[in-house]
């Protein structure tokens, strides 16, 4: 199958998966709650408003018609109105979106670069102290409650050492850079605003390292496994039999093939990071979608919660599709297989 057919097939699957995602959010928002109308307008609403809401939602109609109505709304960008802020959920989420993207990208960059490095070290120095240390780090990584790690980091680096700022995206006295992408680091670079650049990078350090740390260990273990597998293949043995130096074999011959499976993991890791951002943003008062949804929880702001769920799942599905599409570019063998 050639590349364009592969892309077309994947896009077709994408539509189906996204439909499936809306089916799940529909079930969770319209079928699971005892009284969806009350969930959508809040606990304080009176009976009259509730009755009007039931009518407006078409809750008296068959479930499949309700689903079609729900889809129709989504197609028109209608994710409902937030109970807490009384603004359309889509607008709210869009305004918080860039902050979450910036945080997850930095966390990802940290987790991937250090993760690959650690995985590589463990694989090349297999069963040595380095390897055991990475294994223990990996187990500690998947065992740490992210929300607690953030609090401990705040205590140490913000309160006791005073090295790093503890909340927000910028110092309160600094004006945000001109809005171009919404990512403060990128925007301040483009507009040459060095004060904002420094402040935004400093504010990113703690949240992104905490968020990335949890995933770092997972990536390191996978790179290790994949590297060990590649190092046992015949072409590596041939290369060492030919007297090519070991460092050259590792970096030029083995690493390139060992990293291919890692790309898939990066796609999957994004899901964990988007989930983890809920906790990290809350701890560090980072004004992203995660903090928005947690703030909504205390108001039982159901439209906001469901809108967030839908947007995050959509982003996650799209990222994984991009990863899938990149795959044949990295690994020429795959093209023939699909």
């Amino acid at each position: 199958m050639n590349t364009s057919k592969f892309v077309a097939k994947r896009l077709g699957q994408l539509v189906l998966v996204l439909l499936g995602v809306t089916l799940v959010t529909f079930l969770v928002s319209h079928v699971v709650p005892g009284d969806p109308a009350r969930m959508l307008i809040g606990q304080r609403a009176d009976e009259q408003t509730l009755a009007a809401m039931r009518q407006a939602l078409g809750l008296d109609k068959p479930v499949w018609i309700q689903y079609l109505n729900y889809l129709w709304g989504l197609i028109h960008g209608d994710l409902g109105t937030s109970i807490r802020t009384q603004r359309p959920v889509l607008n709210e989420l869009l305004s918080f979106f860039p902050a979450t993207v910036e945080l997850t990208l930095f966390a990802m960059g940290f987790a991937v670069s250090i993760g690959i490095l650690l995985g590589l070290l463990s694989a090349t120095f297999r069963d040595t102290l380095t390897d055991h240390a990475t294994r223990i780090l990996a187990i500690l990584g998947v065992s740490t409650p992210l929300f607690w790690l953030g609090l401990m980091a705040l205590l140490l680096f913000y309160k006791y050492l005073g090295w790093l700022p503890g909340s927000g995206r910028l110092d309160p006295l600094i004006n945000p850079p001109t809005h171009i992408t919404g990512l403060y680091v990128v925007d301040s670079l483009i507009s040459g605003d060095w004060i904002a650049l420094k402040s935004s990078i400093l504010h990113l350090v703690l949240p992104s390292l905490c968020l990335g740390y949890i995933q770092l260990a997972t990536i390191a273990r996978l790179v290790r496994a994949s590297m060990i597998e590649v190092l046992e293949l015949d072409y590596i043995k041939t290369a060492s039999a030919n007297g090519i130096p070991r460092s050259r074999i590792i970096y030029r011959h083995a690493l390139r093939n060992a990293l291919i499976p890692t790309v898939t993991i990066i796609g999957l890791t994004f899901g964990e990071l988007l989930g983890g951002a809920i906790l990290t943003e809350t701890i560090f008062a980072w004004p992203g979608m995660g903090k928005f949804v947690v703030d909504s929880i205390s108001f039982l702001d159901f439209p906001a919660i469901m809108g967030f769920t839908l947007v995050v799942a959509t982003v996650y599905v799209l990222i994984n599709m991009v990863v899938d599409l990149l795959y044949p570019l990295l690994d020429p063998q795959i093209k023939g297989v699909h």
Binding site: V17, V21, V24, V28, M39, I278, V293, L300, V312, A313
Partner: peptide, 22 residues
């Protein structure tokens, strides 16, 4: 099952538990 896996665990758990009542 594939569709459920399209959601990050914590995000789907959050939505479900909000729908069921905290």
């Amino acid at each position: 099952m594939d569709i459920m896996l399209a959601f990050p665990s914590l995000v789907l758990a959050l939505a479900l538990s909000a729908a069921l009542g905290p």
